[in-house]
Design a protein around this nucleic acid. Structure first.
Lengths: 296, 296
DNA sequence: GCAATATAATCGGAATATCCGATTGAATAT
DNA sequence: ATATTCAATCGGATATTCCGATTATATTGC
């Protein structure tokens, strides 16, 4: 068994097609064919049913699939750990959605460094699809994001309820006042939010929409405008009083999730990392709650 | 990365010597040398410090070691699962010490078959060293034995307290009567027992010693003799009254352990298997307890 | 210091495996 | 029928692996 055979197998499963798998792997189709054939010979079982519409997994292939994922992850992880400086004895990597990155990353790194100083940490921020891909490939051990796609071999655990509150830099006003509607910024908080938002405010016009929340915050600081934001992003402005929640405006909820492998390379370490995230998040939520309470 | 490179790496770690590793793997020393070298080149790190006394792991090699064990186990497991008949979707294998085999194996297989009918089961009985080797190589998922050797990457969990009671086929007697000393069979219940037994009865002569308990039971049935046995092995004879416990004789305790991998290929399935063992054992212990109570 | 010994690295050559590019073959849609 | 879309196969170039023998190196005993 060569790891490239496993990678090829997984790519064929993912694309359902020898030719596309060959393209993605930068080899010829005949090479893919040969790799799969030798894997099948070694295992003594057909892994794919080849037909007009590409390749479909056999039952035996399906049984290989889960282990294949693990093998790829494990080898990725092994290469990574071996490459570490000798002062470390293992590694843990965390990926965080861009919108949560700033708040979670540093406290978590500090927490981990205190609890496990010989663990090398790797942190990255990206959008959900990138995080999922890295999770699948074993580059990430844990990811934090909203609205994850369900995936075999991954545990999804809710761990953070976020409140999206309508904030404004207009003078204190009620949702009925409609002052806040002047210069409204629509922040893209994901599919669930878009749906809820549209049904609540079907006729609301926005002067622009922001993909990244920090843009919206900056805009609010410099203009009399309104936007849906989690309280923690405008903590400073709330304290100053420059930003106020719109009274009686509906609050949207959003659930942050922890995603990690069902079969980790190092279960103890993974759970330490998760514990760190929960602890860091609890602190974050407590702060936010106090602030929201004070502003109401 | 070829799996043979990992196997070779692990064998060199185990023997601490390229030549012995070559012998065990049935290849030449130059092949072992080349395999390790190519692995080192791929990883960009030296894995061993070569010296007069063989090969010692570097820090980087040590970081590879744990993953190497997992890789070997995982591939072993994958090959096994792929080879399964299509009616099954995964597999679980249990190894049991010879002395516990008969009592645990069948109930566990029945329990598992009821709870998870699509899981292919593999059961084997052997002495502890064989079980440990198979556990290490990924052939076994769970082992049940007394006095396991501590090993990296394995969880050891106590789950069964066994009482070794002095039984006799002489007429009912007290330990002070010394009738029972005529024709005493010393059963080898392991190192701990030997030690405790010797200090308790330093001058006790035995007519023979038995490595396998069933031999001792058979001997007791056919001769007026005595031996230390767990009650469950002489349940039938206790009910008939042909075998009696020696009153006031000290009871020796022995702890049965569950051993399994810290990083299993399929955690859910593993824990189902463990649950089955605990359930089966609880039943066994309850029966034994009732019987011992009745006999006293 | 000098063999004797044990260990791993290296080298040359044979065998084997891998990969590519082109072709073939099979199944399906038009 | 014909075109299209897949995967299998073949031939040849290249790369890798393996063995057997030799070499290099460090340790031990004398």
């Amino acid at each position: 068994m060569h790891i490239d055979q496993i990678r090829t197998f997984l790519e064929v499963v993912a694309t359902g097609n020898f030719n596309r798998a060959a393209e993605n792997l930068n080899v010829t189709q005949s090479t893919v064919s040969a790799r799969i054939r030798s894997l099948e010979e070694e295992l003594g079982r057909a892994l794919f049913e080849r037909g007009r519409n590409g390749a479909r997994l056999t039952a035996a292939g399906d049984r290989l699939l889960r282990h294949g994922h693990s093998m790829r992850r494990l080898w990725q992880r092994a290469r990574n750990d071996v490459a570490l400086p000798d002062a470390y004895d293992s590694s843990l990597s965390l990926g965080v959605t861009l919108s949560l990155w700033e708040e979670i990353e540093l406290p978590w790194v500090n927490w981990m460094h205190r609890e496990a100083p010989t663990v090398s940490l790797h942190v990255e921020a990206d959008y959900s699809p990138g995080l999922m891909r890295h999770l699948r490939d074993g580059i990430l051990d844990i990811a934090v994001m909203y609205e994850p796609l369900q995936m075999q071999e991954l545990v999804i655990e809710e761990f953070l309820r976020d409140e999206l509150i309508l904030f404004t830099t207009h003078p204190a006003c009620d949702v009925a006042d409609e002052i806040w509607r002047q210069d409204y910024v629509l922040v893209d908080w994901g599919e669930d939010f878009r749906y809820d938002h549209d049904s609540m405010y079907p006729d609301l016009v926005h002067s622009f929409s922001a993909g990244l929340s920090s843009v919206a915050v900056q805009y609010l600081e410099q203009n009399a405008a309104s936007a849906y934001l989690p309280a923690r992003l405008v903590m400073r402005q709330l304290k100053k009083g420059s930003v106020r929640p719109v009274r009686n405006a509906p609050v949207f909820e959003r659930t942050g999730c922890l995603i990690y492998s069902k079969s980790p390379a190092d279960g103890d370490l993974l759970h330490l990392g998760l514990e760190g995230l929960r602890s860091v998040t609890a602190e974050l939520e407590a702060q936010t709650a106090r602030l929201v309470e004070a502003a109401r």
